[in-house]
Design a binder for these strands. Sequence first.
DNA 1: TATGAATGAGGCTTCATTCAT
DNA 2: AATGAATGAAGCCTCATTCAT
Lengths: 214, 214, 214, 214
Amino acid sequence: MSSATSANTKRDRLIESAAVLFHRHGMISTSLADIAKHAEIPIGNVYYYFKTKDELAMAALEKRRRALEEIYTFLDDSLDDPRERLIHVVRFFDKVKEEYARHGCPVYRMIADAGESDKEGVGNAAAGIYGQFVDWAERQFHVLGHGAEARPHALTLLAGIQGAAVMAKSFGNPHIMANEIERLAAWLSALPNKRIFLGKAGAGKRGSPSQDAA
Amino acid sequence: MSSATSANTKRDRLIESAAVLFHRHGMISTSLADIAKHAEIPIGNVYYYFKTKDELAMAALEKRRRALEEIYTFLDDSLDDPRERLIHVVRFFDKVKEEYARHGCPVYRMIADAGESDKEGVGNAAAGIYGQFVDWAERQFHVLGHGAEARPHALTLLAGIQGAAVMAKSFGNPHIMANEIERLAAWLSALPNKRIFLGKAGAGKRGSPSQDAA
Amino acid sequence: MSSATSANTKRDRLIESAAVLFHRHGMISTSLADIAKHAEIPIGNVYYYFKTKDELAMAALEKRRRALEEIYTFLDDSLDDPRERLIHVVRFFDKVKEEYARHGCPVYRMIADAGESDKEGVGNAAAGIYGQFVDWAERQFHVLGHGAEARPHALTLLAGIQGAAVMAKSFGNPHIMANEIERLAAWLSALPNKRIFLGKAGAGKRGSPSQDAA
Amino acid sequence: MSSATSANTKRDRLIESAAVLFHRHGMISTSLADIAKHAEIPIGNVYYYFKTKDELAMAALEKRRRALEEIYTFLDDSLDDPRERLIHVVRFFDKVKEEYARHGCPVYRMIADAGESDKEGVGNAAAGIYGQFVDWAERQFHVLGHGAEARPHALTLLAGIQGAAVMAKSFGNPHIMANEIERLAAWLSALPNKRIFLGKAGAGKRGSPSQDAA
DNA sequence: TATGAATGAGGCTTCATTCAT
DNA sequence: AATGAATGAAGCCTCATTCAT
């Protein structure tokens, strides 16, 4: 947290620029020269930090994964109700609807573009971010008592968000995404809370027994 | 009906190859040389049929648009119940779920890749295919009596399909798509039919029988 | 003069289009397809009339040469005074000054572009048109009595016109050409008539002997 | 003054080769590969120095412009009599008459070829070189006291040179150019010096001694 | 660590010319 | 005579990656 901080500034700038430009123009159409320029780093220097374009893409994806991880953890810690957590996450996408309407979902961009590069690498890393979401959402549904339906619900939830993103980008209209988001939020709100309360009969607010599903 | 057929064989082969390869590898990563080779046509000859890569892409999209148009028309003609038509269309995607799980939705591929090529051309043409679907679906919901909700429903329907495609491709799993499709079909089945029937005299408030707008 | 007339219509159209487009865009930048389209003739048909692009260029130059020949002959026949003939020709360029200001001299265009094609052919044919002018002008100066200076004068005259054309095109300004033309006309007007009259002894109107200014 | 020299060697070689080949074969007929080969630089490396063929052309023209600028400045500094300066410049073309007889004026080559490339760039840059000459010559004529006639004279002078170049190239004969140059030199020598001398008090009508505008 | 320079493969497009009918 | 189609060479430009310092 301290030793490598200054030295990694350039590395971070590269990752950040890559993330931004890959989202805007796609991974294929973004050249390393573009990224280097955006990050204000001499192109020759890029290769000191990343041996390959794919490696840089992987780093950008990894950074995003970790950021999301923190968000999920934060939600787990700060919100008691899994339903609230889910709604919170869904509503988050309302904040980025303009960007999504312009460029689509950055993760799917990577998945789509990855086909041509490293089979195992970039594509899987990007898909892993979706997997991370689904796993987390599944846990929330699980806690809500939707045992067998937890994973399907989680998948449907992400599908809903991604469908909204596709529509918004295709029609260049963020409102479409906003509408779908509200639909999803309404769905989440209407979902029954099936979980069995343990000790505190009747009213237990935070009686969540076994949340971790993994 | 026959003379022109043979003359256009090469052109058609080119379009078909382009459609296939654009879907598989994306428009950017597919070179004209790839297409020419796939179509077994000398590269230099491609120019005779299409002055530009974008022009070829447009032709491929146009072909798809027309094919879909025919499908919609066929459904309109052969099925009386709009709900049936919608379900039919949704179920159609079940047939292509393996392909979608491998390569995603071909139309969105074009939309995503188009950003880098002709702004007005390819992207709009691809988005137009989605627009075509939404317009048609809206008409179906309209006939079902969902006046104000017709368009939102249509958008939600396509969003559902696209979300399913994104998930299937991201996880390389066609089943996810199948599940989402069933969910959508169930939703369509459960939708109330609000339209007023003619037969039962007296009940209809506004005796508008066939609101079908062609 | 009659048998091949209708059959040569296409040929003539090709030559005419070639002349126009070669002047506008240069010989190199004008494709045979451009010419064919301009002449409204299928490209495959061009080769029936001309085995090669250079051959078409030669035909266009030859047509121009003949047209000029007729003009010179006409002037010789219709004007008695060689000085008048020369002034007439020089003033002719005033009519095309706008075109020259936009595209330069069509003949020099060919000469410049010819370097890359047939060494002996196009370039020589184009230069021949200049030679034709110089020869004719030389004869006029000769008749005016400028024996030894006839050819130098002829060369200076064409140089003056060409210099005017270069300036007009370079600055995109036809007026420059108009000015130079007037300068040349004034020079011609001021040139002494040295020729010795045969019959009428002592009748020389303006007995200015040798003011030749080089 | 030395470090940058070696670093720019390749760039300079590229510019020099471009200038030479553009003059010899024209800008259109000279490929970047030709230039690279002539400069002994791998083709792919050209892009590092010039993003575009036009950009390379612009650099070549700019180099020529600067070289001429230095010449004009040198003449202004080393020769007191503007007439001498003008004659000096005109006679300079005698040294390049063989080259001009073979390839014409390199600047006009660019102007003629530029029509097909960048409208604003190359053509204007090339024409600017002529403008630079005319502006300088105009100043000389001005100092000689040819107020209103200064610019026309300047234009006529350049027109004379260019006409000579056109003739020399067209007939492949450097002597023609030599003759025209001498004619121009004679014209300059014969031009009256209208400027008012300072020394002689009382005689100067409009005591404007040195109108030289830099 | 850092960096400007180098490089070669490949992409899209153009076109004169040929061919088959 | 006529013509749509075919073809290969070549041109300009891009870029991931490597190299020398």
